[in-house]
Design a protein around this nucleic acid. Structure first.
Length: 661
DNA sequence: GGCTTAGTTGTCGGT
DNA sequence: CACCGACAACTAAGC
């Protein structure tokens, strides 16, 4: 079913420099009649011939190839499909093969976009612009902000506070909102204050609005009569859905939309397209495809001397950046957290990190010490990258400068620059994989019959597994919102394939809420990795909850700091306090089972069980080619439990889950 | 299609 | 302390 159509359309792609008209398309139906289909408000005008591959009911999936020699691919979904998650549809286009579509995503990849950018229908004509901040909370290397200020008499720098993200949720297991722990909310507020301060120095200010961001933005567009709307492109499903709404409105209202890719080093859509429509699934293949960033050797715009003034805000209610208290959080006692939000802090931290050129040149991620907490073994720039307080591209260029001036340096994947590339790797795979954040319906994810055990999950989440190394990490997560990468590995492995055999999505949820650097693509990618659900499959390699920490920190100082109940436990027992003789426990003022819990599982038997289950699950996945139904999973789960009963000596003895006060 | 190779970060017990 | 092999054996990519 391939028909020929003509489409007037455009894109929101980063390289689109002019936009602002409604697009619509019509098709010829089977009887040869021209049928006008829904209006799509799309920006730049491009003439492209395209083939309709699937057009059922209201849903539209289009595969396009341009009339010119460049290959072009567009996947479009109308509004109606955005609400419901749909299964991926696979199809083949005449000129290229691709197998991705995500109901939440609209992507246009132009291999030579410049050719399509001629003859803009509508140019910006001065007047006002909105700079919509979401991530990208910075002045340096901010192309959206730069574009907003060009040729505008007024610029409205806006941040919308979404109550869902910010307001206290009394039912949550720790202080914070439903979606974010208090640490990250605080970090965000600090970042906003810093951004406001910087904007004021440039003759502007940050306008804080409250409400559902889409509605609020559309109201601003209506009220302020701006000609341009500028914001950083975002691949996260949440923003994909939000941005389509806002772009549709803006385009319908004749407002130019400029939405550049500046959060990552590369444009994920470009890389996916270069790989024939599929995201690369290994780091090495990603590196090959990615090559050098296009901007690698040209200087980024890292400073702005002034900004146009803020225009009349009409009846829109503008407030200052709220405090934690303003948001409804009482006085919550909190350990001093070593990480303050904001661009200034990010640049300061960056400068400190790269000032030690030897350290930068010799950095090898896997060799870092996860138990270092007074002075962490990594840069701790991740939360700044997450909110865009720091530009990953600027960071990358700074690293290249250091590398140029030293004799030898480490390389990806272990080098510092390699870490930024990991970030882009996960952004790319996540963008190109429907249901990336779930096991079900995720083609990359092994279907594994994880156990469901609320008691064990709570023990893990609340730092009472009885394994001090694991619990100390979980305390650091809750108190600081940050732990070393390898510490994250330890607890993620423990929760899933190593010991508890609980679903990685449960752990993902906890990390997503509590980490100050939690990032949708990276967090999900790493949980897929650590649970051996995707990317990494060597399920025999299990982090020991005892010896892994011990090899870095034999004295247990990390444990003593985050679990003060164990501070007087002799180092011989601190990783396995249940083995300490009663006299020692008394002397340390820590009776196991009373002051600190007994282990919730025995690691030796639990990890053997996990390996056995993974082996069986892998075999079934292979047999059924990854297509496991819910029934298949249930059957496997039953079988695994039966086998467990047949071998009672292997069956782990579950301890009563203790409570740590 | 079959085969080889490589894969950011395991543990344990050796040298 | 650095490195090695055994353990048991996975997948994606590339030829």
């Amino acid at each position: 079913m391939v028909e020929r159509f003509h489409l007037v359309m455009g894109s929101m792609h980063e390289r689109v420099e002019r936009c602002g008209v409604d697009g619509e398309y019509h098709r010829v139906d089977h009887d040869g009649n021209h049928v006008r289909k829904r209006e799509m408000h799309i920006s730049l005008i491009v003439n492209i011939d395209f083939d309709v591959i699937s057009d059922e009911d209201d849903d539209v999936v289009l595969a396009l190839s341009s009339t010119k020699s460049t290959s072009t691919l567009l996947i479009l979904y109308p509004k109606s499909s955005l609400a419901s998650q749909r299964h991926p549809i696979q199809f083949k286009a005449p000129s290229l093969t691709f197998s991705r579509c995500d109901a939440m995503q609209l992507s246009l990849c132009l291999s030579k976009p410049a050719q399509h950018l001629k003859n803009p229908i509508m140019a910006a004509s001065g007047s006002g612009s909105i700079m919509w901040f979401r991530k990208g909370l910075r002045i340096h290397d901010n192309p959206a902000l730069d574009y907003a200020s060009k040729g505008s008499d007024f610029v409205y720098p806006v941040f919308v506070i979404d109550p869902h993200y910010m307001e206290p949720d009394p039912k949550a297991f720790s202080p914070g909102s439903r979606l974010a722990g208090l640490n990250r909310i605080r970090f965000l507020l600090e970042s906003l204050v810093d951004l406001d301060t910087s904007l004021k120095k440039l003759g502007s200010r940050l306008l804080i609005l409250k409400g559902e961001p889409g509605q609020v933005l559309i109201r601003c567009l209506k009220e302020w009569g701006v000609k341009k709307l500028c914001f950083e492109y975002d691949t996260d499903p949440h923003y994909q859905a939000l941005d389509i709404r806002v772009k549709e409105y803006a385009s319908a209202a004749g407002i130019e939309v400029f939405s550049p890719v500046s959060h990552t080093l590369f444009n994920p859509a470009d890389i996916i397209q270069r790989n024939g429509g599929k995201p690369p699934l290994t780091y090495q293949s990603f590196l090959k495809l990615a090559g050098q960033p296009s901007w690698a050797s040209s200087p980024l715009l890292t400073s702005i001397s002034s900004l146009p003034p803020v225009g009349d805000v009409g009846s829109c209610e503008i407030s200052e950046v709220p405090t934690i208290k303003d948001l409804g959080y009482g006085d919550i006692e909190q350990e001093w957290i070593p990480f303050r939000g904001g661009e200034s802090e990010a640049l300061k931290r960056l400068k400190e990190s790269i000032s030690d050129k030897e350290w930068v040149a010799n950095f090898e991620k896997p060799k870092g010490n996860p138990s270092a907490f007074v002075k962490p073994a990594t840069t701790v720039l991740s939360p700044y990258l997450k909110f865009g307080c720091l530009s990953s591209r600027y960071f990358y260029q700074c690293l290249q400068d250091v590398y140029k001036n030293v004799q030898k340096h480490t390389s990806p994947p272990v080098s510092l620059a390699g870490q930024l590339l990991w970030r882009d790797f996960f952004y790319t795979v996540a963008f190109g994989t429907p249901n990336f954040d779930r096991m079900e319906g995720n083609k990359l994810c092994k279907q594994i019959p994880w156990n469901d055990d609320d008691e064990l999950l709570a023990a893990w989440r609340e730092a009472r597994t009885g394994y001090p190394w694991i619990d100390a990490i979980m305390v650091q997560l809750r108190k600081w919102g940050w732990m070393h990468h390898l510490a994250r590995h330890s607890v993620a492995c423990f929760l899933t394939r190593g010991d508890l055999f609980l679903h990685w999505e449960r752990g993902r949820d906890v990390f997503e809420r509590l980490l100050i650097d939690s990032d949708w693509a990276i967090n999900n990618g790493n949980w897929l990795w650590l649970s051996c659900s995707s990317f990494f499959y060597q399920y025999n390699r299990i982090y020991s909850p005892i010896s892994f920490g011990k090899k870095y920190d034999p004295n247990g100082d990390y444990i003593r700091h985050f679990l003060p109940v164990l501070k007087d436990m002799p180092k011989e027992y601190i990783y396995e306090p249940w083995t300490a003789p009663p006299g020692i426990q008394r002397k340390a003022k820590c009776i196991i089972g009373r002051d600190y819990p007994k282990p919730v599982v025995y690691h030796d038997s639990a990890s053997k069980e996990c390996k056995r289950k993974l082996a069986e699950a892998y075999a079934l996945n292979q047999k059924l080619n990854g297509q496991l139904s819910q029934e298949d999973l249930d059957n496997l789960r039953r079988k695994l439990e039966q086998d467990e009963d047949i071998e009672p000596k292997i069956r782990r003895q579950r301890q009563k889950v203790g409570h740590l006060t």
